[in-house]
Each structure stands twice: as structure tokens, then as C-alpha cells.
Simulated assay, not measured.
Amino acid sequence: MKLIYVFDAYCGWSHGFSATLDEITSRHPELPVEVVSGGLFLGGRRQPLSAFGHIQRANQQISAVTGAEFGKAYQRLAAEGSFVMDSAAAARGVAALRQAAPGRAAELAVALQRAFYVDGLSLSDPATYRRLAETAGLDADAVVAAFEAPQTQAEAEADFHRAAELGVTGFPTLLAVDGGRATTLALGRATPDEVDGRLAHLGALPVF
């Protein structure tokens, strides 16, 4: 059995799920985690923050429900309003980080979201990936080169297709996959204990 985490780096609810993802991966290092970018802000949805009038209210709700932090640098970015969230660029970043450390994909996805939602950094900027790579002890030059490489765009698009093939309609979605069967463990939000309960029901964990 493995876990598949489908998220978007610019999705506030995915940011809110980070603590649960961290805890689940800490509790169950034996379960490999595949991280897939879902593609929330593509095409016509790729607009300035000011076009999404509900974001501030949504972030307040996310923080209240999950305890997620929305940092002052991000809040200044949101208040100014001109920043454009580009999920294709963020998915290239996920792919670049995943190439550098496949076994740490979940950890790096969480760090990527913190870079935006706490530190207010653009996920379209190569400097963001250099900083993340250096902090994680990865080869920063290799990560930046991968982010800028044409083939990484193909990986990002493959992620979007993968999410669709899995039937994912909202972010974040955490799936347990065993053979050809995929079971939803979380959609939008869930506590670590709720996820554990669902894993135990599948027989993936011992029940005491």
C-alpha cells in the first residue's frame, strides 16, 4: 500500500492540511507517499489575487479550522493584490524538488507551501527553489536547473493528467492505493487520527 497526496501549492486548504500530512508521514514512515500537483490556477483561473475576493475569508476559516499560519509577508502580498498564482509554475517546482529527493516529496511539498503562505515568496521564481533546496540540504543548482528545464513542464502536465485519472475533484485529496484500488482518506481536511482510523479500517494498520 502507498499514499497519494494530490494538492496544489497555491491551495489554501492544502496549506491547512500540511500539519496532518506531516504527522501521518511521521507516524507511518513505512508508507511511501506519491505527491501529485493538481493544477488549480491554470488557464482562465490564472488571475491576480485581487480577482479572488473570497480569499481573506477563506484563509481565516482555514486558520480557525486547522491552525495553519498565514504569515505577514503573504498577507501583504494578498493585500496588494497584483500577484498572479500560476499553478503550472508551482507544479514545475514540485517536480524539480521531487527529482532531487523523491523520498522527501511530502516534506518538500509542505515547505513549498510555507514559502508562499508564510514567507510570501513567488512559486514562479527560481530563487524560491534555490532557497528551499539550500534549507533542505539539496543541490540547489540542480533543483533550479530542473525547475527551468523544458522537460519539467512535461512532468507538471503529467501530474495534472494523473490527478484527473485518479478522479480527484478537490484539493487536497489523500488517497490510499493498494493494488488497483484507491480509497479516499481525506478530502479538504482531516485530522491525523481520522486518517489513521480510515487506514485501520482498510487493514493497513493494526487495531487495538
Rank of each mutant, 00 (worst) to 15 (best):
R181M: 12
L108S: 01
A204C: 11
A145F: 02
G81T: 08
V195P: 13
G71V: 03
H28K: 06
C11R: 09
R27I: 07
L132K: 07
G137D: 06
I55A: 08
G12R: 00
R198I: 03
G137W: 07
D139T: 10
L205K: 05
A19T: 06
A149R: 05
H54V: 03
S124E: 10
L97W: 04
A88R: 13
R98Y: 09
F7W: 14
S18H: 01
R189P: 12
V143H: 09
D8E: 00
E69A: 14
G188K: 02
L49E: 01
K2L: 15
G197I: 03
T169L: 13
Y10T: 13
A58C: 12
D119L: 12
G203Q: 10
T173G: 06
R114Y: 06
F17Y: 10
Y10P: 09
V84F: 10
T135F: 12
L21E: 01
R98K: 15
T173S: 08
L3D: 04
T173I: 05
E23D: 07
E107G: 00
I62C: 04
I24T: 10
D139N: 07
I24W: 02
V35G: 00
F147T: 13
R162P: 00
A115L: 06
G81Q: 03
A79F: 07
V33E: 03
A127K: 06
G81K: 04
V143E: 04
E80I: 04
K2C: 13
L112R: 02
Y5M: 08
L175F: 01
A19F: 11
T128K: 14
A127T: 07
P126W: 13
K2M: 15
V6Y: 00
A88T: 14
V144W: 10
R57G: 14
A204Q: 10
S37A: 15
A182G: 10
I4M: 12
G43P: 01
A186I: 09
G179P: 04
G170E: 06
G180I: 11
G103D: 10
V143G: 08
A149Q: 10
E69N: 10
V110T: 12
T66C: 00
F83Y: 14
Y5G: 02
A163W: 06
A176W: 05
F52N: 09
M85E: 11
F70H: 02
R130K: 09
A146F: 04
T173H: 06
Q153L: 15
A96S: 04
A146G: 12
H161F: 14
Y10E: 10
E194C: 08
Q151C: 11
K72N: 14
L123T: 07
H54T: 02
G71M: 03
